[in-house]
Nucleic acid binder design. Structure first.
Lengths: 245, 245
DNA sequence: TACGCTTATTAACTTAGATCAATGAATAGA
DNA sequence: TCTATTCATTGATCTAAGTTAATAAGCGTA
């Protein structure tokens, strides 16, 4: 499966030199390209899952459903993200993943990836690095839910998604397409839909964003950053031992 | 630095066979054992940090301070945890880590650990696996803050800490020592101190816990699990390729 | 033992945000 | 084009949880 132009390559090359050979080794373990339709479940809560899916295009959400019927979305999954991490390290998934739009991805088995890591250790580090980003994103989400006001939360979420989309060239300088209903965004931010709606209107009223249907325009990036106390995460490149360079 | 009996070894052996040789390679890169006093900062928000600190004993918290003065604690750090992950992958830390009790730890530089990963790929995977656990713990925290009620949150937190302490033999079947003030716990759970206090009393009134000073007794484990909808995370062992076994 | 500081508890008051319910607007199939 | 959902918006009401402030209990140290 050719990976050229795949957004995951764009992400990885930001932290390590991926030689043509590296890309080839990666390609070798990929089984097939798949796609799922909108609303299709990629991972069912409580099931086993031992694959890594590198998202090429489309949007998905990872979430937990509680008995009360409440849903908490843990992460919005964008092109360049990996589905199946960290769940593949566990017995079974305690979360579900569902596609929000049509979604295409390249898939390999967890085992074959692990095998690759033993042969080429840099791929193990890549996995750690992806994990580090995942953990850092989750950490921001915790700060958001725990101690930011609803308007700050929303501003922060928009900035985060914007930055992540920029990284894989799915956004331009100040705007991007976001195919999520308000119900989805409310479940990311731990808010009710009516309240989220009010908060969106506040952001619009303060001229910080404009949005119609699914297009978000960040009218005042600096203002948003200040409101959200947004700090971009600057990744350090993965160190490469001398004798390898 | 001898690692025998170090809680990190207890944690690691739960997912992979650590041979005596492996432990030796780990020991070789550790520089020295350190300790810090209560309230001492291990990582300053905004600073660089390129070390891995394997906690031997004591408690710490990782947190973010907001301009408003609010604090969100991201994680309580227990014996067996690693301080410096994931921050070592980033330019500088956006979080602070401070010791809550006296704390002792073994430290190695991030670079030397990375070097070890290139020589012995299983250590790269160990890092991924620690990261996966970290991410999973954060994910639970997100669910907690976003969609659980305060009493459920507290129950969940106590169960999580209990499970993590059990893993490194710092708790017994139903009780453990927790040297955190209510202010700390409130900042983990995104609550105010007075409200947390009410919630603690609720848990006590419902006979789910008893606690005096710093000793927590989980009087009714099953009841707590049900209340919190707690699901233990069962880790799968790291697969080892055939030709290595 | 006494002092001072930190921590726990309680109460009164206020408010942000949930809930419930209704109405428009938009979109996708038939 | 029409119709059926899904989605966005608004309003009224209610309550959980924050805020502030005061008091009590513990604890460390001189």
């Amino acid at each position: 499966m050719p990976l050229t132009g795949h957004p995951i390559v764009a992400r990885l090359t930001r932290v390590m030199k991926l030689s043509a050979v590296d890309v080839k080794s990666l390609e070798a373990i990929f089984e097939r390209d798949l796609s799922v339709r909108k609303r299709e479940e990629l991972i069912v809560q409580g099931s086993e899952f031992r694959n890594l899916c590198f998202v090429k295009d489309g949007f998905a959400i990872r979430y937990r459903l509680l008995r009360s019927g409440k849903r908490q979305i843990l992460k919005v999954i964008l092109p360049g993200d990996v589905i199946g991490f960290p769940v593949s390290f566990f017995d079974r998934s305690t979360y579900a993943v569902v596609a929000v739009t049509e979604l295409t991805y390249a898939v390999c088995s967890f085992d074959s990836y692990i095998r690759l890591c033993y042969e080429q250790p840099q791929f193990g580090l890549v996995l750690s690095w992806l994990a580090a980003q995942e953990a850092a994103t989750y950490a921001e989400h915790i700060v958001n839910l725990g101690r930011r006001t609803p308007i700050e939360r929303l501003a922060h979420l928009l900035l985060e998604i914007h930055a992540r989309l920029l990284e894989v060239e799915r956004a331009d300088e100040t705007s991007f397409n976001l195919p999520f209903s308000q119900e989805v965004i409310a479940d990311v931010l731990g808010l009710s839909v009516p309240h989220l709606n009010r908060v969106i209107q506040q952001l619009r009223a303060e001229q910080l964003i404009t949005s119609n249907s699914r297009l978000i325009e960040l009218t005042d990036l600096a203002g948003l950053r200040k409101l959200a106390q947004y700090q971009p995460m600057d990744l350090a490149p993965i160190p490469v031992p001398k004798h390898r360079e």
